[in-house]
Design a protein around this nucleic acid. Sequence first.
DNA 1: CTACCGACGGTTTTT
DNA 2: CCGTCGGTAG
Length: 627
Amino acid sequence: MPRIPIDAWRPKGIEDLEENAWRALRAQENIAVVAGPGAGKTEFLAQRAAFLLETGLCPDPRLILAISFKRDAATNLADRVERRCRPDLARRFVSMTFDAFAKSLLDRFVAALPVPWRPILPYKVVFASARDISGFIQQATQAAPRGEWQGEIAAIPTGQFESHGLGSLPLHDGLLEPTNGRQWAILRWWRESLEVPGGSRLTFVMINRLAELLLRTNPQILRALRATYSHVFLDEFQDTTHAQYALLRTAFGGDTVLTAVGDDKQRIMTWAGARPDAFARFQGDFGAERIALLCNYRSSPDLVRIQHVVARAIEPEAAAAVSMAPRSVDGDVAQIWHFNREATEAERISAWIAQDRALTRLGARDYCILVRQRADKVEALLERAFAAQGLALRNESAVIGRTTLQDLLAEDLTEMALAILRLATAERAPAAWTTVAEAITLLRAVDRQNEAACRRVECERDAFLTTLRARLAAEVPNGETAGQVMQEVIAFLDPAALARSVPRYTTGETLEIAGEALSLHFAASAEGAADWSAALDRCEGIEQIPLLTIHKSKGLEYHTVFFLGLDDSQWWSHTAANPEGLATFFVALSRAKQRVFFTYCAARGTRRKVDDLYTLLRQAGVQETAP
DNA sequence: CTACCGACGGTTTTT
DNA sequence: CCGTCGGTAG
């Protein structure tokens, strides 16, 4: 296949790029791309991948590795590259999460770890709860060999032990001799976790640290890794933790070309262990040039202007973004709504949305209810009023069985099972056909060359679909039938085959948890649904207004955003001008494409702590009204 | 058994 | 800031 000359390369699927994006796209050195909300970070990375592959700057057989924090971000990026590139090139783009990257290194080369750090196999991935850690700190305090260390250990903040303690202590070839109480406690944690008869218990922070040690002590593995990947992309770089940063330095501190993308103004994960200086250090440690993307393809000019007031409060030097999205609504694009009673608040929001929908024909998913925390409380508060207006809410973080709604909807199992049910209810569902065909090929492990085998599998599939179609046609949707039907669909897909063919389902209880939750959720969706197709719509959240926390909304966008509860009780941890609080507010504000409304309800509490946020809105010219 | 007090967690991802 | 949980006094 011919390579495209660098100067002749054009972007795929979009018109053009802004000037700085072109410069960043063509860079052959490490770069730090600072991209505010709506700048098209993911699109930029997808275009850069296409550029590097199609021009041969990433030469065959070398690969591009893209590292994201969340699974959905990793999948999303891989999908975009697939849509932009020939299959043989897209195959050389590897997109995974940080944790999956660290774990894959550990799993492949565990035997190369220095003996004192080698886990007992099979090790188990565990998630240390705050309770586990505070319990550990308590007993470590008791057991500390020196009096002066005891106070030091007792003073370790529970929330920082894993990220700042375990995450930032480098491991060494041999056993380490602790020089202070903190180190003693961290090493004790390591020994207790590694020396579990029957299998070590490792958290992802530990897996990151072990992967880093592995590369540092095995130059030949490090060389092989660097030979594999010519370029590495790092998404949401502002959220990099201590352990991840250390792994990056060891793994790619050589001649790999790194592209880090992110926005310090959207750094809202430091409380969960993100290091506050990742971007700044990256520029120093990796000699990366800083390139700022200035366009905002999401929000209208009026919203971008309001966002800029908040952006400057976070970073006084912040450059103003240029809105590329025309305004499409009349009236104020931002308002503060003041209520006395929660019932009035719920009623006015729902009535407003119902009326707006009637006028504009926007879909339910063009609106969004954002909260700082405790989405279930807000769901209970709004549900009745919304139902009275014929609106449905979808609490994305609702707990279903042992998982949550949004995790369940991201499961491969869910995608496959719902596609089968779509085929059994809808007249035409081309996307569902593709999904089902691919799923069956994967799960039945049919050789495409073997025509007889293919036909047999197709017959089996059609027979199942015919029976299912007849069954659904004969029954009115209800919870009990829906639960049973889902179990049958899962049985048809075959849990054993899923465990064999989907890496995610190979170990642990993930498949079982997803199966359970899917049956529960489909049952709940079918209860009171007009027909089976409506039950499936409900299951997928079509025509439901999303309700989610700011943290979950990162990276998403909505035409009209309601931020519910700009008050001290939702913002209990906020203090004036603290960067993380301002960043959280900035993320909420910048989800909106056209309109954003903040609500305050006196019955919920005061607004002293959040006074600085109101001041910023006032400075930006946002009016307060009592609708 | 109940009533009250103080401590603590909340916003999250990851195979 | 506010709800929950565990402990203890009555």
